[in-house]
């Protein structure tokens, strides 16, 4: 695997040190969970489910564009992991391996039952929004709608880059593409998203300004 490192960009959107360490600790927790699974067998699977299901469902939803199918894909992948508990532990990067498994299952489901999804239709999503974030719910829905309007190849790179905080080299390993392809897909995706979310950006800036004003007061 080539070790492509994208040039560091001094943008405010790049993950902070605390986010990076949070992601590192998450991958470490997945590794620990995989070891427990290898040692204790299927009985330790609930720990892995609790740890990863949210992220896996989120990733699979961007591929299948339907949360029910995404959950089926996650279920199939985790059941396979439980059937061979030692396999996950033997991997160099268990989290990347899990993501690849879920991706494969999602693609299988997508091939088996193609769905006609209308752009902007988010009725399959099970959502949660904290009370203090209710004002931003419309913005979240706009983001998910915009993500769904992207081609899958681009949206999954965005998910892995922003939500999973992976490097392009790690993304390339999961998607079995070159790091430069991952980087260019990401660039195209962000450009499209910024077009589609320009209105939301203004609102978010307004919201952040209000938040800042409240905190100063």
């Amino acid at each position: 695997m080539s070790h492509f490192n994208p040039p560091p960009s001094p943008v405010s959107g790049s993950p902070t040190a605390s986010q990076c360490s949070a992601f590192a600790s998450f991958t470490q927790r997945v590794r620990v969970s995989a070891r427990q699974l290898a040692e204790l067998g299927e009985d330790a699977i609930s720990g892995l489910i609790d740890l990863t299901s949210l992220r896996l469902v989120r990733y699979a939803t961007t591929i299948t564009r339907n949360q029910h199918d995404a959950e089926d894909a996650v279920q199939a992948a985790i059941v396979k992991v439980a059937a061979q508990p030692g396999r996950l532990h033997q991997c160099e990067d268990p989290w990347a391996f899990l993501l690849r498994m879920v991706r494969n299952e999602s693609l299988v489901i997508l091939r088996r039952r193609p769905r006609w999804n209308l752009f902007g239709d988010l009725c399959d999503l099970l959502t949660r929004c904290r009370v203090d974030e209710l004002e931003r719910e419309e913005s979240y829905r706009a983001i998910w709608r915009a993500m769904r309007s992207l081609p899958t190849q681009q949206s999954e790179v965005v998910v892995l880059k922003i939500w999973e905080e992976m490097t392009f080299a790690e993304i390339a390993a999961v998607l079995e593409i070159t790091p430069s392809t991952a980087a260019s897909r990401y660039r195209y995706a962000v450009a499209k998203l910024s077009d589609r979310l320009s209105g939301e950006l203004g609102e978010a800036a307004h919201f952040n300004g209000q938040e800042r004003g409240r905190s100063h007061a």
């Binding site: 943008v11 405010s12 959107g13 790049s14 299901s53 949210l54 469902v57 989120r58 939803t61 949360q67 959950e71 996650v74 999503l125 099970l126 959502t127 949660r128 929004c129 931003r136 719910e137 913005s139 979240y140 829905r141 983001i143 998910w144 993500m147 965005v158 922003i162 939500w163 962000v190 998203l193 910024s194 979310l197 939301e200 950006l201 978010a204 800036a205």
Partner: peptide, 19 residues
Amino acid sequence: HHGDIENLIRDAGDYVRPG
């Protein structure tokens, strides 16, 4: 601008939850 977009998307990450 891209940084703002990334922040916006990052915030929406926890909006969807598993059943």
